[in-house]
Amino acid sequence: MGRQTYPEQLSQRAAPVITGHVVRLMEGYSREIKVGQPVLVAVLTAAAVGRLLGALVASVLRFGGSSGGARRKFKELRKGPEFLVTPLRLRIRDNLLCEVEIHGHLPQTALEPHDHVQVTLRRQKDGLAPRVERIVNLTTGQLLTPRTPTLWSHLGPALVLQAMVGLTLIGLLCAWLFTRGG
């Protein structure tokens, strides 16, 4: 009779810092960042006010106004940016197997099987494996910090700047109306 093997049980520990050895980096896949509709509507509204102010200034100064480049559609902005998720299996104390997620890109040679690492983790919602915030590869002495896109990098600096100008204008208008009324 052949030897029967059972899959090893994964530890669900999510201590803030764990130390162990890399067992395996699994195949990566992409995940999308969720963009909240109320936040997006507020940013787009403030940006529209900022664009309106820019168009007004351009017309007063008689600039040949440009459209400012191609604007992305609401549906496109609503669909958040995608980032790489790479599951990482570690062998921690008591010979337990622990799975965590690396969000973002790391150099291919940054982690090798059997490397001794110290990993700083953050819990995730929806019962997902803990997310890696920082990895110290004790074997090579490297400090690795994976980076993922944010809502602000997804919207882009031009739209964020327009929204800040719009919010400033709305704030000034509200302050002016408040002082006139009182």
Rank of each mutant, 00 (worst) to 15 (best):
A42F: 07
P107G: 02
A129V: 10
G80L: 02
E112L: 14
A15W: 07
A129N: 14
V41W: 14
R180I: 09
Q108A: 13
G50L: 11
V39T: 10
N95Y: 08
W176A: 08
R89Y: 07
P81Q: 08
G127D: 06
N137D: 13
V165R: 07
T120W: 09
L144C: 13
G65E: 10
N95D: 15
R91Q: 13
A42K: 00
P149C: 07
L177R: 13
A47T: 06
L128A: 14
P107S: 03
L56F: 10
L151Q: 08
C98D: 08
F74G: 14
T140F: 04
L84T: 07
V57G: 02
A14G: 04
V60Y: 11
K79V: 12
V119P: 00
E27G: 00
H116A: 14
D126A: 11
T5P: 00
P87F: 08
M164S: 15
G156R: 07
V160F: 10
G182W: 12
T5I: 00
T168S: 13
L77N: 03
V136M: 04
A163D: 01
T19P: 03
N95C: 00
I33Q: 05
A158S: 15
L159P: 01
L25R: 15
V119L: 02
G2P: 15
L106H: 10
